[in-house]
Design a binder for these strands. Structure first.
Lengths: 217, 217
DNA sequence: GAGGATAGATACATGCTGGTGTCTATGTTG
DNA sequence: CAACATAGACACCAGCATGTATCTATCCTC
């Protein structure tokens, strides 16, 4: 269910390349949290000036991936266990709010449910194929579609930053364990059922149980 | 109830001045939504180069106050009525989540309640003095303290951007009308009561009624 | 003479400046 | 109406000034 959000800012080719490269370095986990590096490193790597790199750093600072220290450099913002709790709480709140709003527009409900069922089928296929990585991606996509169904640009964008942050945390922890895959699929189906039934309360409890089971075990 | 969040980034004196000036121009409503202006204008106004202005623009773009158009300039992001609904929904979700989490840490509850009661007393004083502007500020502060009580850095920051956005919308609409002041105070007291009683459901319904009454009338 | 503190020097990274090339939109001319 | 010229604005670059942390050599104390 595509819903219009702000497009990615296009600040120029060099700035975008610097942004993509730096973000990849941070999100891939190659740079440990707290690692200090400089604009010059990225600039040299890409063969560009420091100016576009600086722009990229500022954008990444706005996304909370970097923290710029005056006259020192940029540190990779570390993700802490306490923050994990924060991310999960925020995700819960956003998803619940999205469902709440969706249920207030009954005419949009069938399409949203169909969209979620399609996403679930894709995830099921990845599970059958034993592709854990694709499964995890489909999992993110499923929850993202729940939020998108709420049609609130602000929360959609905020949720995207949360997902990114969680991805960084999971990178350092273990990925999804194969034996939990069937449970995840079953719980996703249950989430869809509560939405279909207009059971806002039931969705909230099911979602909390779901997230608890996956990430807080 | 102070709770640590990220400090404002300090990118240098010139960049900060450019940031403050531009933000003031946008938030004060002097520049209408959709107005196009250039880096050079601000740079000339402050007597600095375009580079720090560019940094300020990027920060403001991250805050959704500006939209930078390549090779064209910066437009003031307009606030639309549909977005008003989005902002209110998001605010609701965040405040409810904060209370939910607060109620999960009973030992923090008394201090939080006392904090909210103090904020309410201040607001009451402004109402008695007939200072509508100070009343509105105290109102923002009250709701901000509810969110702060949830002690979730991520949602606290997000909520701050929401409040800013709402401020811009209210700037174009009417401010708080004096005859609604007593009702607002009564509803705030009721919100505190539901929190004190651990009535999460009651808080949600009371909050929704409260926000509906103020902003969606 | 040994050890530690301190002042100077060094390396490094940022913050900002001025300027160049390029792109977009606008106005002009045939 | 189309092609061209023009003006405005950005995207980027190279360089200078400034600030910070580190390293070193000297000095003082014991």
């Amino acid at each position: 269910m595509p819903y219009p959000t702000s497009p990615e800012p296009d600040a120029g080719p060099a700035a975008d390349r610097a942004y993509d490269l730096t973000k990849k370095l941070v999100l891939s986990g190659e740079l440990p949290g707290g690692h200090l590096f400089s604009e010059g490193e990225i600039a040299g790597l890409l063969g560009v000036s420091r100016t576009p790199v600086r722009e990229a750093f500022l954008r990444l600072q706005a996304e909370e991936l970097l923290r710029l220290i005056p006259k020192r450099g940029a540190v990779v913002v570390p993700v802490s266990p306490e923050e994990a709790e924060d991310v999960l709480d925020a995700r819960e709140a956003i998803e619940i709010a999205a469902v709440r709003r969706l249920l207030h527009s009954p005419d949009l409900l069938p399409a949203a449910v169909a969209d979620l069922q399609a996403a679930l089928r894709i995830q099921q296929a990845h599970a059958d194929a034993g592709d854990v990585h694709a499964f995890a991606e489909a999992d993110e996509d499923f929850h993202g579609r729940i939020v998108a169904a709420g049609r609130n640009c602000l929360t959609i964008r905020f949720y995207a930053t949360l997902a990114e942050r969680q991805q960084r945390m999971s990178m350092r922890a273990l990925g999804p364990v194969p034996e939990r895959l069937p449970g995840v699929l079953r719980e996703h189906a249950e989430l869809i059922a509560t939405i279909e039934n207009g059971d806002e309360q039931g969705f909230g409890t099911a979602l909390r149980a779901h997230l608890d089971g996956i990430h807080r075990s």
